[in-house]
Design a binder for these strands. Structure first.
Length: 376
DNA sequence: AAGTTCTTATTAC
DNA sequence: CTAACGGTAATAAGAACTT
């Protein structure tokens, strides 16, 4: 059945919330992210307002570069609790517009509107899209009146098109792409505009003379599969505006991780293990809060030259019960076989063992350490 | 040969 | 000098390993 999907994207969300809370910054370039520390900061830009963007600043830009581009900008730290609260308010609003919703991040959400007009469906399909447009205007208006924040909405026959429409309409925009407009909408766009095509994939495609989605469509599915594997098949479908992903609020957490970049690269064991133990405790707390168990521990280490490596260890799983009978195992018979566990001691000792290996086998200064566990 | 584990690469917000 | 480059999570692929 044909669907009508809406994508909501808050405009420059973190920066917009800060502007709202600090009206004295209105009209000035505003950057939310790491502390620039006079140009020596190690972090990146989280979000910036549109004035800052005129200087070439954007999300994920190293904060040192942002400072260089516009030292007179207002630099604010990330106040995640605040944005989280505002996000909850917004999500509470949007959920009332459809029982089928999906939160993507603090500032993005999808709604499936298909069924809304289904019950009282009157005449033509075209009418349904008009009603979707009215709903979007109402939604934007309600968010603005209640939260004083502007947003952009994209509407399309699936999540892919809805998202791309919003991307093209921002800021404070509304763009509706009906099924018969999908082809015209997509073909002139750059390949990077297609979700799933990042810098690396784009570079490979450019080497094939492909720059626009229209050109991408000339490459066969089997060729894309040959070059990019499974991703290639997805790209083939997406280039044609095909996307069957459901809007669904179910989320299954598969891993929990924490990373920390040091102020300065270091080999000081006090600093390294002190930081690491805090990471271990934080992760374990989150594990217990969610009543998860873990089965794989992965330690991440980034060296001063940015080389990033991982080491992981999986707790061996219990012997599989095959078709034939398996002898009952007694605990004492498998001292080395462990099941997924919540045990803090195991997490701590195994994680530290892995980290120690990095220290032993590599003399370079360390920039970042991290820990991730896959949960079940 | 099949299933697991380990590691790296890529993407996205 | 020459790049600068956070934190969190998912997914895919291939090599290495175990059974």
């Amino acid at each position: 059945m044909e669907r009508i999907i809406l994508h909501l994207d808050m405009d420059a969300f973190f920066a917009a919330v800060e502007e709202r809370e600090n009206p004295q910054f209105k009209g000035m370039p505003l950057v939310v992210g790491a502390d620039p520390k006079g140009g020596r900061g190690r972090g990146v830009v989280s979000t910036c307002n549109y004035i800052a963007r005129k200087y070439g600043i954007h999300s994920a830009l190293p904060i040192s570069k942002a400072y260089e581009l516009c030292p007179e900008a207002i630099f604010l730290p990330v106040n995640m609790e605040l944005y989280q609260k505002v996000s909850e308010n917004i999500m509470a609003i949007i959920k009332r517009y459809s029982p089928i919703w999906e939160t993507v991040s603090l500032d993005e959400a999808y709604l499936d509107l298909s069924h809304i007009f289904y019950d009282r469906r009157k005449r033509s399909i075209g009418n349904l899209w008009e009603e979707a447009e009215n709903l979007a205007k109402k939604l934007k208006k309600e968010i603005f009146e209640k939260e004083k924040l502007t947003s952009t909405v994209g509407i399309g026959p699936n999540k892919l098109i809805a998202k791309m429409a919003a991307e093209k309409a921002k800021p404070n925009g509304l763009l509706i792409i009906k099924p018969n407009q999908v082809k015209k909408f997509l073909e002139p766009l750059a390949i990077e505009d297609l979700p799933g095509i990042g810098p690396k994939t784009a570079e490979v495609l450019r080497n094939f003379g492909v720059n626009k989605i229209k050109e991408l469509k000339k490459i066969s599915k089997s060729k894309l599969k040959e070059i990019f594997g499974l991703v290639g098949e997805t790209i083939y479908e997406r280039a044609r505006g095909v996307d069957e992903e459901e809007v669904s609020s179910e989320e299954i957490i598969k891993s929990i991780g924490k990373e920390h970049t040091f102020e300065k690269d270091t080999r000081d064991p006090e600093i390294i293990f002190g930081t690491f133990e805090k990471i271990i405790r934080d992760i374990w707390e989150e594990l217990i809060e969610n009543n998860f168990s873990f089965k794989t521990i992965t330690v991440i280490c980034r060296f001063s030259d940015f080389e990033t490596r991982t080491k992981s260890k999986t707790e061996p799983r219990p012997l599989k019960m095959g078709g034939a009978k398996v002898k009952m195992r007694t605990k004492s018979s498998l001292p080395t076989l462990k099941e997924p566990t919540q045990d803090f001691k195991i997490l701590k000792t195994e994680a530290k063992k892995l980290l120690l290996k990095f220290l032993i086998e590599n003399p370079k200064l360390i920039r970042l350490i991290g820990l991730r566990i896959t949960v079940c």
